[in-house]
Design a protein around this nucleic acid. Structure first.
Length: 480
RNA sequence: GGCGCCGUAGCCAAGUGGUAAGGCAGAGCUCUGCAAAAGCUCCAUUCCCCGGUUCAAGUCCGGGCGGCGCCUCCA
């Protein structure tokens, strides 16, 4: 069995073979930093995180480089032509800050929000504004090769020159309806052409000198410039939200392949589906989207991560209170099993992953099948059952292996184990001995049948967030 | 209008043509001073509907019905 990835380009699952023998390049379209991250960002970047974590696990000998851009030059609120406003500039006016200040502010908050979800940071987080030169170079190349034309300080990609245009989305330019809006005073030769460089109107805060005058880059060109700069002209995986496949990713392919003459620009295209509520897409423009920061007030971020992983990345995720609560209940059950094991196995040596174990094999087979996290999580419940029964039978010989299974599958690959708990810190050990003092006090009370006293200890600890549980082998404690 | 996706139990959800994973909720039992946890058992003769292909279809094909996404910024 080999890792298979569903490739949007071919609309099939294909076995993964890296472009280069010793390295893998992964790029996901990053956020435009003019507002806080919402649930949709969570699904997209958890998907990216799973891809990266799993590739690193599956191909330990290959260097995986993960690049995710930060879009800090605004795109238009309207269409990409004369009308419309730069989103970052709109926000900067609202907040009375320079656009770069706005970008910086939301970039930091973005990383905080992603950190909470236990998303490993990209190896490189290139800023669009830091790569204006690279973008201009590609545009110059496209002009030289006749794939682009300049009109009044604007440069457009000439879609008619690229026979491959449409290969990702299956769209043919002639069949597109002109979106209902009137193309007012367009300089374009054809409505399908898209902007590579735009002339800046006076007062536009973000603008740079170029061979075509003062201006700023078009929407799509940044991703081509930054991905190829760090991953090469032909790399392995490019991901994005489904809604970006057209026009954004389609245009990326066109401009990249025409500029370099190398095909394919990207070998595997991955697109994650949306988060819905009541069956309808959650989106910024629809006003039904939830900011992660607000959600964190109510839910454990890792529990949200778990909720998202319980559906496949190419399926929609139904995000309602009921769905989150149900997922959370199951998640807490897994965690409790893991925590009990951690306590019982304190001090035992770390062992490797037992790769022959049928459960481990099943987990890997699920992940190999286009990152089927929902199916993989099902095997975690088997692991939980196995762990619980080892614990009840005091089968200590199994503890170390079980613990490393949890750490690798649930921890390293799925990233759903709390960080603090995955290492046996000094603090935990000290707390453990303090807890045993209280547990002994309570046992003494119970032995003399003073239940008022014993219940008081349990209740007060419970109020402090510590749960005591009486089992056959004695009383155990865990954090709520 | 064009491109594409989906419809599986009360809810979330996986499903490679071979006889419906998993979780939540619900019911019962064991253990227990009580509680919690854990364990065991039960919980879709059926996968929106109708045809077809096949020894065999939730899975393939055709036609309906219903929902959704993209074609404007959006993860």
């Amino acid at each position: 069995m080999a890792l298979h990835i569903y490739n949007t380009l071919t609309r099939r699952k294909e076995p993964f073979e890296s472009v280069h023998p010793d390295r893998i390049g992964v790029y996901f379209c990053g956020p435009t930093v003019y507002g806080d991250a919402h649930v949709g960002h969570a699904k997209a970047y958890i998907t990216a995180d799973i891809v990266n974590r799993y590739l690193r696990f599956r191909f330990p000998d290959k260097k995986v480089t993960y690049v995710q851009n930060i879009t800090d030059v605004g795109h238009m609120t309207d269409n990409d032509d004369v009308s419309g406003e730069d989103k970052l500039e709109v926000q900067s006016r609202k907040e009375r800050k320079h656009p770069m200040e706005v970008a910086e502010y939301y970039t930091r908050r973005y990383f905080e929000d992603m950190d909470a979800l236990n998303i490993t940071r990209p190896d490189i987080s290139p800023r669009a504004t830091g790569h204006i030169i690279e973008q201009i170079e590609i545009i110059k190349e496209l002009l030289t090769k006749g794939y682009a034309y300049e009109v009044n300080g604007n440069v457009y990609f000439d879609v008619a020159q690229d026979k491959d245009y449409g290969k990702l989305s299956g769209r043919k330019a002639e069949e597109q309806e002109s979106s209902g809006r009137v193309e007012e005073r367009s300089d374009k030769r054809s409505p399908q052409d898209f902007a590579l460089w735009k002339r800046a109107e006076k007062g536009h805060l973000l603008q740079w000198p170029s061979p075509w005058g003062m201006g700023f880059p078009g929407w799509h060109i940044e991703c081509s410039a930054m991905s190829m700069k760090y991953l090469g002209e032909s790399f392995d995986i490019h991901g994005a939200g489904l809604e970006n496949s057209f026009p954004h990713n389609e245009c990326e392919i066109a401009q990249s392949e025409c500029a370099t003459g190398k095909k394919p620009f990207v070998k595997y295209w991955m697109h994650n589906n949306m988060v819905t509520t009541g069956g309808v897409k959650m989106g910024k423009s629809l006003g039904n989207s939830a900011y992660l920061r607000d959600l964190y007030q109510q839910y454990d971020p890792l529990s949200l991560r778990f909720t998202i992983l319980q559906s496949h990345y190419r399926s929609t995720t139904e995000f309602t209170e009921e769905a989150i609560a149900a997922a959370d209940a199951g998640y807490q059950k897994l965690l409790s099993s893991y925590h009990r094991l951690l306590q019982a196995s304190m001090g035992l040596p770390v062992t490797g992953l037992e790769e022959s174990n049928s459960l481990v094999r099943e987990f890997i087979a699920s992940m190999d099948d286009d990152f089927n996290t929902a199916k993989a999580i099902a095997t975690l419940y088997d692991l939980s059952t196995e762990t619980n029964s080892a614990l009840t039978q005091q089968d200590k010989g199994r503890y170390a292996t079980l613990r490393s299974t949890w750490n690798v599958l649930a921890g390293n690959i799925l990233g759903i184990l709390p960080r603090a708990a995955s290492t046996q810190s000094d603090l935990t050990e000290k707390m453990d001995s303090a807890m045993h003092l209280l547990i002994r006090q309570r046992k003494a009370a119970r032995d003399r049948r003073d239940f008022a006293a014993s219940d008081a200890i349990r209740n007060e600890l419970d109020a402090a967030g510590i749960v005591l549980e009486d089992t056959k082998e004695g009383t155990t404690w865990r954090l709520k």
